[in-house]
């Protein structure tokens, strides 16, 4: 089937299998490999992207369901002026180690800050509860998001 999906502002029209997952569309069809796959049960959140501005797990969405919609991936976050505040927060506060959960974590945090510009620690933990990190133990991720909240927010 034919889908037209706008990814990071760029429209893409492709012929896809109806069962193709959005995450594979991004990674394999468009070679946007920043979005990762960490599980097969919608548990880990490594595949989190924004679909029309809402954080979704792209392993749980068919490419067909994204037809006519806009996707933002980790590749679309940094602007001409460099890293987004969330990305910079993760760098400043060592919110990543291996970096595998990071794209999903950064996208989820971006969506969280868009909704709640000044979240408490508990609100951050709650907002990221669909995302797993095996390296950091989360505290420095929480600190990263708070840094971002204080330095520009969701942009």
């Amino acid at each position: 089937m034919r889908v037209e999906i706008t990814v990071n502002g760029q429209p893409h029209t492709r012929e896809v299998e109806p069962r193709l997952l959005l995450v594979h569309f991004l990674r394999d069809t468009l070679s946007l490999t920043g979005t990762h796959i960490g599980c097969d049960t919608s548990s880990c959140g490594a595949c989190t992207v924004l679909l029309d501005g809402v954080a979704v797990k792209s392993c749980t969405v068919l490419a067909a369901q994204a037809d006519g919609r806009a996707v933002t991936t980790i590749e679309g976050l940094a602007g001409e002026d460099g890293l987004s505040p969330v990305q910079e927060g993760f760098r400043q506060c060592h919110g990543l180690q291996c970096g595998f959960c990071t794209p999903g974590m950064v996208m989820a945090a971006t969506a969280l800050l868009a909704e709640r510009p000044d979240p408490t620690e508990q609100e951050i933990r709650n907002g990221l509860k669909g995302n797993m990190c095996r390296c950091t133990g989360y505290q420095m991720i929480v600190e990263s998001v708070r840094w971002a909240a204080a330095n520009g927010g969701a942009r």
Binding site: R27, S31, L32, T33, G34, T35, H36, I37, T73, I74, E75, L77, A78, L83, Q87, F90, R91, Q92, H94, L96, G99, F100, T102, P103, V106
Partner: peptide, 21 residues
């Protein structure tokens, strides 16, 4: 000091095995 590793990993430009074609 913040890490040298982070710039690539934070922008989706890391290279994990499954990213290689």
């Amino acid at each position: 000091v913040p890490r040298k590793e982070d710039a690539a990993l934070l922008t989706g430009r890391g290279t994990f095995v499954d990213d290689i074609h």
